[in-house]
Computed example of a mutant assay.
Amino acid sequence: MQRPQTVLSAASTAVLATALLLAGCVALVAGPVTTADLPAELRRLGPARVLLLGEQHDADAHQALEHGTVTHLAAQGRLAALVLEMAERGTHTRDLPREASEAQVMAQLRWNEDGWPWARYGPSVMAAVRAGVVVLGGNQPRAEMRAAMADTSLDGRLAPEALARQQDLIRAGHCDLLPAHQLAPMARIQIARDRAMADAVAEAVASAVEGQVVMLVAGAEHVRRGLGVPAHLSAPLAASTRVVVMQAGAPGRPGDGEADRLWLTPATPPVDHCAELRQRWRR
Results as ranks from 00 to 15, higher is better:
residue 167 Q to V: 06
residue 167 Q to A: 14
residue 168 D to W: 14
residue 168 D to A: 11
residue 169 L to D: 11
residue 170 I to S: 05
residue 171 R to A: 08
residue 171 R to S: 02
residue 171 R to Y: 12
residue 171 R to L: 08
residue 172 A to N: 04
residue 172 A to G: 01
residue 173 G to S: 08
residue 173 G to A: 09
residue 174 H to L: 05
residue 175 C to R: 02
residue 175 C to N: 07
residue 175 C to I: 02
residue 175 C to V: 06
residue 176 D to N: 08
residue 176 D to K: 01
residue 177 L to V: 07
residue 177 L to T: 09
residue 177 L to P: 01
residue 179 P to Q: 15
residue 179 P to M: 08
residue 179 P to H: 10
residue 179 P to K: 13
residue 180 A to Q: 14
residue 180 A to R: 11
residue 181 H to I: 11
residue 182 Q to C: 05
residue 182 Q to F: 15
residue 182 Q to T: 08
residue 182 Q to Y: 15
residue 184 A to N: 13
residue 185 P to L: 06
residue 186 M to R: 13
residue 187 A to C: 12
residue 188 R to T: 05
residue 189 I to K: 09
residue 191 I to N: 02
residue 191 I to E: 13
residue 192 A to P: 07
residue 192 A to D: 11
residue 193 R to G: 07
residue 193 R to H: 11
residue 194 D to Q: 04
residue 194 D to H: 02
residue 194 D to L: 01
residue 194 D to A: 00
residue 195 R to I: 00
residue 195 R to V: 10
residue 197 M to G: 02
residue 197 M to L: 14
residue 198 A to F: 05
residue 198 A to S: 04
residue 198 A to I: 08
residue 199 D to R: 12
residue 199 D to A: 15
residue 200 A to K: 04
residue 200 A to H: 07
residue 201 V to N: 09
residue 202 A to Q: 10
residue 203 E to M: 02
residue 205 V to N: 06
residue 205 V to G: 01
residue 206 A to G: 04
residue 208 A to L: 05
residue 208 A to R: 00
residue 208 A to M: 07
residue 210 E to H: 10
residue 210 E to I: 06
residue 211 G to C: 09
residue 213 V to R: 05
